[in-house]
């Protein structure tokens, strides 16, 4: 597959918690480049720094040092270069969670449309886009159903629709297939790959799920905060 623009560029990214004797280095000088269309996996044992790296790329954790650029815009260089990180996340990043994290008081359609509502889309246009995505992900027939009544697979597809609603070019997924059986996990990954290609987006996934390793373009191993193999 032909790769496109650099969407995520990380240089010398580091994170430590505490100081002195209590200092813990969660991530040590990590460099990473992810291009449009790429689907990569962050692998490693617990405490290796996978989630820390994902959170810093997602602008929800302050790095201790290094540089981060998203979709060509430098966003961190020793300090955050933008004040509106939530708007940045809304416009550029889509999140997919292990536990789906759908809002229980909204229907499947509303869970997708809420992102567009926050982005300032007109309500009708937002709902139409939500329906379009749900139909595409083959859960359109469950649009008016609350998350509690969705199966695990349906909920995950709604969560993917939400992550893609505002057409972000960077999709961060935290164990997206952990709650799914083998065949469903592979279907979800195939779907993500297809969407990444169609939307010219990149997908960075934290996973332990060996069943889906073959669905990634790159497997990036982390150990003790170091990037050991890419």
């Amino acid at each position: 597959m032909a790769l496109g623009d650099v969407l995520v560029e990380v240089q010398g990214l580091a994170k430590h918690f505490g100081d002195g004797e209590t200092r813990v280095d969660a991530l040590r000088s990590v460099d990473l480049l992810v291009r449009a269309g790429e689907v990569i996996a962050l692998l490693g044992p617990s405490g290796s720094g996978k989630t820390t790296l994902l959170n810093m790329i997602g602008c929800i954790l302050d790095p201790s040092a290094g540089r981060v650029a998203l979709d060509g815009d430098p966003v961190f260089d020793g300090k955050w270069l933008r004040n509106d990180l939530r708007r940045l996340r809304l416009d550029k990043i889509g999140f997919i969670f292990q536990a789906h994290n759908l809002l229980p008081f909204l229907t499947a359609e509303e869970n997708v449309a809420v992102v567009l509502d926050l982005a300032g889309w007109p309500a009708e246009k937002g709902r139409a886009r939500a329906r379009e995505l749900l139909d595409y992900l083959e859960v359109g027939h469950r649009a008016k159903v609350k998350p509690a009544l969705l199966s695990g697979g349906e909920a995950q597809r709604v969560a993917i629709a939400r992550a893609l609603a505002n057409r972000p070019r960077i999709i961060l997924a935290d164990e997206p297939t952990a709650a799914l059986d083998s065949s469903r996990a592979q279907l979800v990954m195939d779907l993500l790959r297809k969407l990444a290609a169609e939307q010219e987006a990149c997908i960075i996934t934290v996973t332990h799920d060996e069943k889906i390793f073959d669905r990634f373009d790159r497997l990036i191993h982390l150990r003790d905060g170091h990037l050991v193999d890419a």
Binding site: R86, R87, R89, L103, V114, L118
Partner: peptide
């Protein structure tokens, strides 16, 4: 709180 954290993560401003 978890729902509020999710809203913040997907970009909801404080006013929401």
């Amino acid at each position: 709180l978890k729902q509020i954290a999710t809203l913040k993560l997907i970009g909801a401003p404080d006013r929401t």
